[in-house]
């Protein structure tokens, strides 16, 4: 049953038999029923109604014009033209024109429809009944009976062998789906423990792509390096650089607080993994006075003058240091791979 066939008199206000109406006299808080409908200006003044009609029609017309404008912009504006729009700045002319015309075309349809609904369509509030969602006891009893009969006819409860084997079959079947996902990727193995660094690999400056000499590294500057032999075009470059990225700073040897760190340095140059031990962002902010480096992602802060120790933030362990030396030709080279896994910690890290 729909609302339009509910006559006005079923509304609480007019419902003489409704208890609320009777009690009103004695109870100041009783429900007075739906308030009477208040007429809008458009309901009583045809002139105002016509004004509203014109506004709605104007909005729809504006939308049409905007659509024409959209097509015109699409056809006439070059895709690479930039314009200055105050206060936004330099933006793509085409994007600006298309977006605004589309926006106006859409908005005006919406505004027209809403204005139409608010001013010209009936705004009489009506009440509709709700019905409890729960089934009546009779319906429930019937459903239960039907189910019992159906279950009995299937014999599921009686023939245990069928039931058990069916459950077994259904339970095993999804294993096939699980197995199918095995080839999503390889097993971890020792992949996370090894990087592209090995003994004798020279440190290549990432900016110049030339091998680094100790004199290239000045106190107070942060240099990024990668192992020799790695090329951007390599198919596994992204995976390898994700582990091998290295940062190098020169400290005064007397400033190196950690003894092992001093042993692993060359001419006061220390080389640390650039990959944060928290969740693996590349660390890239260097404070030259304190020799602290900061990861811009989650603000873990490490002290490069003290063995890469964590001094603030969510990282759980120190940055791994790469043992380096100056080779016969005067270039910096690695004396082996990192002695521990680089990057974020994991279960097998130990």
């Amino acid at each position: 049953m729909s609302s339009q066939d509910i006559p006005e008199e079923t509304l609480p206000s007019a419902q003489g038999a409704h208890e609320g109406a009777v009690a009103t006299a004695g109870d100041p808080f009783a429900d007075p029923g739906l308030p009477p409908h208040e007429h809008r200006i458009q309901d009583i003044d045809e002139q105002a109604a016509r004004r509203s009609e014109r506004v709605v029609a104007m909005l729809f017309t504006l939308s049409m014009l905007a659509t024409v404008g959209f097509i015109a912009s699409y056809v006439t504006l070059p895709v690479d033209k930039n314009i200055y729009v105050f206060p936004i700045g330099h933006i793509s002319a085409l994007n600006f024109a298309l977006g605004l015309t589309l926006g106006v075309a859409l908005f005006c349809i919406g505004a027209g429809a809403v204005h139409w609904a608010r001013t010209l369509m009936s705004d009489v509030e009506v009440a509709d009944d709700r019905h409890p969602i729960e089934a009546s006891p009779e319906v429930k009893a019937k459903v239960m009976d039907d189910f019992r009969q159906g279950a009995e006819e299937s014999g599921l409860g009686r023939r245990k062998l069928i039931r058990n084997t069916m459950f077994g079959a259904l339970a095993l079947l999804p294993l096939s789906a699980v197995v199918l996902f095995r080839d999503l990727g390889p097993l971890p193995g020792t992949k996370l423990r090894k990087t592209a660094w090995s003994e004798g690999k020279m440190l290549i400056n990432q900016n110049t792509m030339q091998p680094l000499r100790p004199e290239d590294v000045q106190v107070g500057s942060l240099t990024f390096a990668m192992p020799e032999g790695m090329k951007e075009e390599d198919h596994d470059f992204q995976q390898e650089i994700a582990k091998a990225a290295l940062m190098i700073v020169r400290l005064r040897p007397e400033n190196i607080k950690d003894k092992r760190s001093l042993d692993w340095s060359a001419d006061g140059i220390v080389a640390y993994s650039k990959i944060c031990t928290h969740v693996g962002c590349p660390i890239s902010l260097y404070e030259q006075q304190t020799h602290h480096v900061l990861c811009p992602c989650h603000q873990s802060t490490f002290d490069l003058s003290d063995g890469g120790r964590v001094i603030f933030g969510p990282a759980g362990h120190a940055l791994p240091q790469l043992r380096i030396k100056v080779n016969d030709k005067g270039y910096l080279e690695a004396m082996g791979d990192f002695s521990e896994p680089v990057g974020p910690a994991f279960w097998e890290r130990g």
């Binding site: 729009v85 936004i88 600006f96 298309l98 977006g99 605004l100 926006g103 075309a105 005006c108 919406g110």
Partner: peptide
């Protein structure tokens, strides 16, 4: 839709 299109424009 209109408001989002206008936001995307500017």
């Amino acid at each position: 839709f209109g408001v989002i299109a206008a936001i995307a424009a500017i």
